[in-house]
């Protein structure tokens, strides 16, 4: 048993799995950094991912092509998150309840859309998913090639988004405005920045990233849709953002940690480790709680976190 775990083959496949499974958490987490920095706690990411996963999948299944499916998924995420923006920014409702409502709605809608488009069937509808790209030279390097260079293109895209997100937040006017709106919306308002607009933008961008993460699950990780395909990844992404203290690079390490837990769980199951599979499946969820325990008190939340802004109120 132990020797099997320590074998090179096991380790490389574990690390490759870590990167692959980190992807659907990393994408929404990066998006939620924009959203949370702007002062919005969007727990509706879970539902947003689910909507994107079904709509993107349906696009591919109806012959739209993988890239089209990916783009439609992103768009679906952006559009669905507009609902959160309307509720939390325009109506200024309690963001926690709004998020819960979005998720219940998405659960129903996703199942409805799937049933509408695919009918009742014995076997789930399947598509051909994104395949690993072969990078000549790199992919063939022993071990390193397997771990880093045998992934599908969306995985690379997700990791490329890390420096991109950092750059937008730290080096552009837009990023600075987002931080200002999350820290001191009244000041942003008095400096001529539209709090409403920036928060809408931050939520919709977060939705687009979440959409990418959601559609990744159905057209790049799996090749089918199930109602539990997201399985809490949205909530995990929110905790990864808190764990990563709203920084893209730290969030990446958080996502990798979860990817590792998920991959380890899958590998150990395959190995027949003797630990019941159901207990291994708890691992990512236990880790989420552990991450929150570890990070919540230390994280410096934006001052206007989860607080609606109104010009008229003091």
């Amino acid at each position: 048993m132990l020797s099997e775990i320590l074998s090179i083959g096991f380790l490389t496949s574990l690390l490759a799995g870590t990167i692959r499974l980190a992807t659907p958490i990393l994408m929404p987490a990066l998006g939620q950094i924009y959203t949370q920095r702007a002062g919005i706690l969007n727990l509706g990411v879970e539902g947003t991912m689910l909507m994107a996963s079904i709509i993107g999948f349906a696009t591919v299944a109806s012959g739209g092509g993988l890239w089209m499916g990916f783009l439609v998924g992103i768009l679906a995420g952006a559009i669905f998150s507009l609902l959160m923006a309307w509720l939390s920014v325009t109506l200024r409702v309690n963001q926690v309840i709004a998020g819960i409502g979005m998720n219940v709605l998405a659960t129903g809608l996703a199942a409805y859309v799937y049933r509408l488009l695919f009918g009742i069937r014995a076997l789930p509808a399947k598509i051909t998913s994104f395949q690993a790209v072969d990078l000549p030279g790199l992919s063939d390097i022993p071990c390193i090639g397997t771990v880093f260079f045998q992934h599908n293109v969306l995985v690379y895209l997700a990791f490329a988004l890390v420096p991109f997100t950092w750059f937008v937040l730290e080096k552009t006017m837009f990023g600075l405005k987002i931080k200002m709106v999350g820290e001191h919306p009244r000041a942003a308002d008095s400096k001529g920045i539209s709090v409403t607009w920036i928060r809408y933008a931050a939520i919709v961008i977060g939705g687009a990233y979440a959409g990418a993460g959601g559609v990744f699950m159905t057209i790049a990780y799996l090749n089918m849709f199930t109602e539990s395909v997201i399985g809490g990844f949205g909530y995990i992404a929110v905790s990864v953002v808190i764990f990563g203290r709203f920084d893209p690079y730290k969030a990446m390490s958080g996502a990798l940690l979860f990817g590792f837990a998920s991959a380890l769980q899958v590998r150990l199951q395959a190995l027949g480790s003797g630990i019941p599979s159901q207990l291994l499946l708890m691992l990512p969820y236990l880790m989420t709680i552990a991450a929150l325990i570890f990070a919540s008190k230390k994280a410096e939340f934006p001052s206007a976190y989860a607080i609606p802004y109104s010009r008229m109120e003091r």
Partner: peptide, 13 residues
Amino acid sequence: DVIQGLIIIFVIA
């Protein structure tokens, strides 16, 4: 299920 979700969102709105 959709009706359930709509009810929450409508009621908070």
